[in-house]
């Protein structure tokens, strides 16, 4: 039997670990899932420490939580931090099957464990007598040295594989500034520079489109990525309202009748001619 302290610690960590795991499973956004998993992994690291696997506990924190999970987060950012899984299941019977299999599997494993009747354990006090790290080192560099060498080869292979997979061969010379300018003239779509985002020095955030003289939004002032994601904050109506208020107060102050300026019905149609930079151009 272990100490009461460990029992308490276990129950706390177990709740956190299972909660994290379930959170990972159920969170819609990948980034939340990653954070939940990180919590699970940290609690597992403490479990390792509690069980006398000091080295593994530290490695778990440094390598898993520190490196691998951050790698996950990087990729999540790369792919789109806000992208969500639609919760609607498209494969017929998949979810029911998964739940049934999961339940069956869990029940079987736990039943098997319960059946094993593990009532007594040795403990690591003897094995860890000269220190956990020293004990592991002795094993790694003697009994498991061959496997250790092979893992080195595996890691190198994985590194090279990752590089090969993400590498892009340049299939043609990149266009120079001059060529790009020439093409723009030749295509005659948008000769001057695109308008900058932001309105009247009140909002200069990149997701707020500039306004045209008639008060409608200039969508091409917002970068293509945001436009595609639909993350444009349209403040034109608010602006127009403030403009109208300003004109009203000016007219009041000057004693003139309020202007009969026609109101714009709504935002202007999107500029179809504005080219969204294609992939090649973007790079």
């Amino acid at each position: 039997m272990t100490s009461t302290g460990e029992a308490v610690q276990f129950w706390v960590l177990a709740v956190i670990a299972v909660g994290g795991a379930l959170g990972m499973l159920l969170m819609k956004k990948a980034v939340h899932s990653a954070l939940c998993l990180a919590a699970t992994m940290l609690s597992l690291a403490i479990c390792y420490l509690a069980q006398g696997a000091v080295f593994l506990g530290v490695v778990q924190i440094v390598v898993y939580t520190g490196a691998i999970m951050m790698l996950f987060l990087f990729v999540v950012m790369l792919v789109g931090v806000t992208s969500e899984d639609s919760l609607k299941e498209q494969l017929k019977g998949q979810r029911i099957g998964a739940v049934l299999c999961g339940l069956g599997f869990g029940v079987l494993l736990i039943a098997g464990l319960a059946n094993a009747r593990l009532s007594h354990f040795t403990g690591l006090s003897e094995a860890n007598a000269e220190g956990n790290v020293q004990g592991l080192a002795r094993l790694i560099f003697t009994k498991y040295v061959w496997a250790f060498e092979v893992t080195g080869a595996l890691l190198i292979t994985a590194a090279i594989g990752a590089m090969v997979l993400t590498h892009r061969e340049k299939i043609r010379e990149p266009l120079t500034q001059r060529q790009l300018a020439d093409r723009r003239v030749r295509d005659n779509i948008q000769l001057p520079p695109l308008p900058a985002p932001g309105v009247y020095a009140r909002h200069n955030a990149v997701d707020i489109p500039a306004l045209l003289p008639d008060g409608t939004v200039a969508e091409d002032s917002v970068m293509g990525t945001l436009r595609e994601r639909g993350q444009i904050r349209d403040v034109s109506q608010e602006m127009l309202q403030r403009m109208a208020e300003l004109e009203e107060s000016t007219a009041d102050w000057l004693g003139r009748p309020s202007s009969a300026r026609p109101q714009v019905a709504g935002p202007r149609q999107a500029l179809e001619t504005v080219p969204t930079p294609t992939k090649e151009e973007a790079e």
Partner: peptide, 9 residues
């Protein structure tokens, strides 16, 4: 997964 289940069982 189902196959594993059967194996374990």
């Amino acid at each position: 997964f189902g196959g594993t289940l059967v194996l374990v069982a």
